[in-house]
């Protein structure tokens, strides 16, 4: 893995965190920001709340419960298993 890439992503996380703490600007809620290092491009994808989500579906927020096994797969995660 290109060692500088997590630097970019970690810094974007840091900026979002500071915004949330200060209560300023527009947080990256409901949007997935993708950065492609090779083409040097950012893409933004709108992502929606799923009313049938096993964890945050309607009426479930704040309840302490184990997530149900339910298949509402949208896509496979594009990433995640590598050693970060």
């Amino acid at each position: 893995m290109l060692g500088v890439l997590p630097g970019v992503v970690g810094m974007l996380e840091a900026v979002e965190t500071v915004k949330i703490l200060l209560g300023i600007g527009e947080p990256l809620v409901g949007r997935l920001l993708q950065y492609d290092a090779l083409s040097a491009r950012f893409f933004e994808m709108k992502i929606d709340h799923n009313p049938d989500c096993p964890v945050c579906g309607d009426g479930k927020i704040g309840q302490v419960r184990a997530p149900e096994k339910k298949q509402v797969q949208v896509t496979q995660p594009a990433s995640g298993g590598c050693r970060i």
Binding site: T17, Y35, V55, I61, G62, I84
Partner: peptide
């Protein structure tokens, strides 16, 4: 989600990164 805390998410794959809250 249970505790209503913002989860600032980041992940990396090869030359691509993803961020969301």
């Amino acid at each position: 989600v249970r505790l209503n805390k913002p989860n600032v998410h980041g992940s990396i794959f090869r030359f691509e990164g993803q961020v969301s809250v």
